[in-house]
Design a protein around this nucleic acid. Sequence first.
RNA 1: GCCCCCUUAGCUCAGUUGGUUAGAGCGACGGACUGUUAAUCCGCAGGUCCUAGGUUCAAGUCCUAGAGGGGGCGCCA
Length: 484
Amino acid sequence: MYNQRTKIKALLATEPLHTQVSVMGWVRNFRNNQFIALNDGSTIHTIQIVIELGSLSDDMIKRITVGSCIKAQGEVIPSMGKGQKIEIKAHAIEILGDCDAETFPIQPKKHSLEFLREKAHLRFRTNTFGAVFRIRHTLAYAIHKFFNDKGFVYMHTPIITASDAEGAGEMFRVTTLPIDGTAPKTEDGHIDFSKDFFGRSTNLTVSGQLEGELGAMAFSEIYTFGPTFRAENSNTTRHLAEFWMIEPEMAFYDLEDNADLAEEFIKYVIRYAMENNADDLAILAVRLEEEEKTLPQDKRSTMGLIEKLQFVVKNDFERLTYTQAIDILRDSTHNKKKKFQYPIDQWGIDLQSEHERYLVEKHFQKPVILTNYPAAIKAFYMRQDDHCAPDRQTVAAMDILAPGIGEIVGGSQREERLDKLTARMKSMGIPEQDLWWYLDTRRFGACVHAGFGLGFERLVQFVTGMGNIRDVIPFPRYPKSAEF
RNA sequence: GCCCCCUUAGCUCAGUUGGUUAGAGCGACGGACUGUUAAUCCGCAGGUCCUAGGUUCAAGUCCUAGAGGGGGCGCCA
């Protein structure tokens, strides 16, 4: 058996003094021809390998370069140096993979995130990205654990979908038809998708919600966690063309139950990451602090990363309706001094990023759950509120807004009443026949139910403090970019 | 899609009003030192100043177009 190694994380945790161990990993630094800082990705920390002077040939010394992969065998001893408690006194060093220091892009120095984004295949080997992607893993695991412990069923909704009525955004077409103009055409000149692989027009999914609702109508509580695709030409620090989304869908939940679950969920996964990735978070906190030093005073956060996460975990999210939010915004001195690019003057307008940021970052300084938006600016499947003023029809929608990220969750209580739902679809121009299967749930045992969608990368952004969403997914997909 | 900014050594950046041979730090490389830890000290190499055109006696510097990168906005998660 080849792999008789000790992981560095376990080694540092157990400190098995005076035992013989074998470690494998990548050289982060090699000082004085004597001290190797070795990292194997199991932790952000390195183990120091000490080579006795003269014990290695000059040729071997030269091959121990930053980035090279080595196997080191030796005795665990208390460190004589100041930077670490234990180290390995090497008896044998084996080069597993050479690494030319002149051409290896990751140097033992600071690099910009933009530069590392272009080296996405190697950036995992840096402290920052090592920490980000270990935390990403932990959050993914915590999500499954949270829902599993509550008895939710993990449901795999399709990635290829024929439904084009969800209205969540532009879609990527999936086809095997030729794109050189020779695709079969119908009599009226359009491409004849009945000749396509699926016998109809298909796309990559923009949401698993509608299928998720079908699951909730049988299992009571389900969640999805999978890739989602939007062909929007979005060029921002918080949008991707391919991202991962968590979409729980629950029978017998109203809007308040829905908000309760979302808040509990967010707090749970953040707490889980804080408990299991404290070292990674600590280094990201330092990174963020240094990054913010370069910003003008008024652009800096009032709290450090760890402080912010603790605050979110400990405090209730602020809950208010769209109408209350409009009142706060309209009466704010910010609005009266005309500091909003889009002034708040009437009920019914959609909130802009600047308004959401004002509420979250200035007014409440904590996550905010906004509910009961005007029906006119929300999706067809959201439940229409009863007893509304005639010109102020709202729906049981909820958005959770997080400081620095904006919308992290979008959800609603779903419209379970068939007549209301079909009337709404008709007024919005959504053909019933496309969603016959969805409407069937309202025909056969419909019940009060609700759900939400949470953008996984936005959650990872929030927890890691990374400013650009392209830095929290291993290989980001966005307009003009699908390298790796 | 719209608006703004940036592009100079492997990386991060200086480069004055358009003016001689384009610089620094870090990294790499060579050496010294040998309990270092962003090691230190000495030395050395390294440039299509993003590309194409233009203005000018003279362009890294000014103008136009393009490419790439970043930020803001919209769409949303």
